[in-house]
Amino acid sequence: MTSTSPRIILICSGKGGVGKTTLTANLGIALARLGERTAVLDADFGLRNLDLLLGLENRIVYTAQEVLAGTCRLEQALVKHKLQPNLSLLPAGNPRMLEWLTPEDMKKIVALLAERSDYVLIDCPAGIEDGFRNAAAAAREAIVITTPEVSAVRDADRVIGLLNVQGIQPVQLVLNRVRPRMVASQEMLSVEDVTDILALPLLGLVVEDEQVIVSTNRGEPLTLQSAPSPAGQAYLNVAQRLRGEDLPIVDPSKEPTGLRARLKRILTKRLF
């Protein structure tokens, strides 16, 4: 048992497809690897994906819905990850049942999960309608994820406004799918452009990485690997910062380019 109260974190973005579910899956695995008892709750039950990304689709028997109805115990509905037993998944519901969930239900489920976890991550559906409202009902803090695109930043801004009204604090930012080359050539919003508008503390910066697609299709989050790819490492760093470790954030577009710098980078990587 830990003395501190469990952290209940909403992962949201407003816009769809910017990487909420990928972040939830990777962060869940990363926190579990760091020894935290972590529960991930898929609040996007209409378009349920978190189980796919974690490779747990075929193990789901019950959902939170049955837990609330008293048909099963929480332990029966929780799906433990094969390789990281510290991580368990609870799907909020069945995609065919769209109407049952209320903010009250959500609070009950999260309270149950919080009793047995250090971290509860809530994967929020896209949009700012009822699904978002339900998912946000039980959260104490939030991570807003966005990509360096005008539309994603605009939607994130709206979501941050709504989180502020609900009194959810702190709200931190993860910037996903950054392409350092495009930023350097000013074809893409820079990290400053985004943090300038959103005015949130930056929790992590994830570069565009093809391995994310591979890992999604396999159902094996990048953070499972012992030597993760760049994006996987970035997700691990997010988990470490979330636990309070002070890791500097390196802006990849600011790294020196040119032959000498590249050579130096290769050398230091090989040596250490």
Binding site: R154, D155, D157, R158, G161, N164, I197, A199
Partner: peptide, 21 residues
């Protein structure tokens, strides 16, 4: 923030930013 709308009847002094949207 995006989506917010502040309307006042007299003049307004906002201590903060008006974000896009």
């Amino acid at each position: 923030r995006s989506g917010d709308h502040l309307h006042v009847e007299g003049s307004v002094l906002l201590l903060g930013d008006v974000n896009p949207g």
